[in-house]
């Protein structure tokens, strides 16, 4: 009896730790987290707080169109090297938005990229494409 209880206890404790045992509940919850970040990205995309002159990303990129997230990383002749999407977002923040660069891991940068990728969902990955 004592043995059985112990083994049940072990089963209960060890169950969540198994890497391959996640449920639909988990994936729903993770997706929900993504959606929260992507919608914060949409908010920032349409908010003057990213720049200093009132210009917003969506003014030139409605629905984040013409940002081509599926083509990064790719060579940018103006930079003379292969660059990532966040570097181009920073270019836009510095120039049309007259703002300051965000760090690559700034939650705002992650959110804006989440939004741009979300609007491009379903499109084939084509790194390097121009």
């Amino acid at each position: 009896m004592k043995y059985l209880t112990l083994s049940t206890l072990i089963l209960c404790l060890s169950s969540p730790a198994l890497a391959d045992e996640f449920s639909e509940e988990d994936t729903d919850r993770w997706m929900e987290q993504f959606e929260l970040v992507a919608s914060e990205g949409r908010r920032l995309w349409t908010s003057p707080e990213i720049g200093t002159n009132g210009v917003v990303c969506a003014q030139c990129h409605p629905n984040a169109a013409n940002t081509h997230p599926e083509t990064y990383p790719k060579f940018q002749k103006q930079l003379g090297r292969v660059a990532q999407l966040w570097e181009m977002i920073n270019w836009c923040i510095r120039n049309p938005l007259e703002g300051k660069d965000l760090a690559a891991d700034d939650p705002r940068m992650i959110a804006m990229q989440a939004y741009a990728y979300k609007e491009r969902r379903g499109v084939e990955l084509q790194p390097g494409k121009h």
Partner: peptide, 11 residues
């Protein structure tokens, strides 16, 4: 500024 062509919005 220019706008994207609507076809470039994939959704």
């Amino acid at each position: 500024w220019p706008w994207p062509y609507p076809e470039s919005y994939a959704q």
